[in-house]
Amino acid sequence: MQAPPTEPANADNAFLYGCRTAFASVFSFVIVFTYIGFGALCHDYGFSVGWSMLSTALQWAGPAQVILVTALGSGTALFEIAVAVALSSVRLLPIVVALLPLVRTERTRAWQLIHPVHYMAVSVWVETMRHAPALPRERRIAFCNGVGFTLVSLGVVSTAAGYYLQAALPAVFGAAAMFITPISFLTSTARNSKLLMEKIALGLGMVIGPLLALSKIEFDLLWTGILGGTLAYGVHRWRRTRSAAP
């Protein structure tokens, strides 16, 4: 990791410093790997390569993208897809809320934030929160844009790479590329689960999901989320009340 440049003289320098930071970050590796898997998934669900790349550029939220592709590909009700995607992306809200005090100046207008905020995913957020405090406040948005633009571009290129690899490689490699999504989602979600509540939700979702899917209940994905999530949250509340009681 290189030292911060001596006070980036202008916004362009801060942007470029953001690009270099992104390439040096561990997330560049994670994103290439994840989006190769996503591209492979899109290929086998029958989407076009342009659509797949646009999904990465516009959505820029792994779980939301995989939900969209699997649900559209298996004929899920449109309303259910929109709600499931929205629920999976609520986590972006607190990330943005935590970012703003770091990058905003008194002269920043709301529309100037729409661009950096689009890049907000855990990866870009972590790198911005780590490096931006060392920069002058009026250069931080440009820095954030540099990190975000670089990682999103890597994601878009990797999506195309995964898509074409899936078409070209023997079936066993295709299966391996598609398997990246479930195994990496499972392990990274488990690792990010700090609260017992999240671990319970993870376990419940894996049990309730297939049960509801097999019983052909309408909106099975949504019901799994709401049922599993609310049960897990209930356990969290119950444990908290019990430990607070004398």
Binding site: T189, A201, M206, T230
Partner: peptide, 25 residues
Amino acid sequence: WVRAVATALVAAVVARLVLIPPGAL
């Protein structure tokens, strides 16, 4: 609460991809 719901949703997608995958898988 939303964090718990989103976690259960992701888990359901993982299960779906393993149990009823498309294509090569």
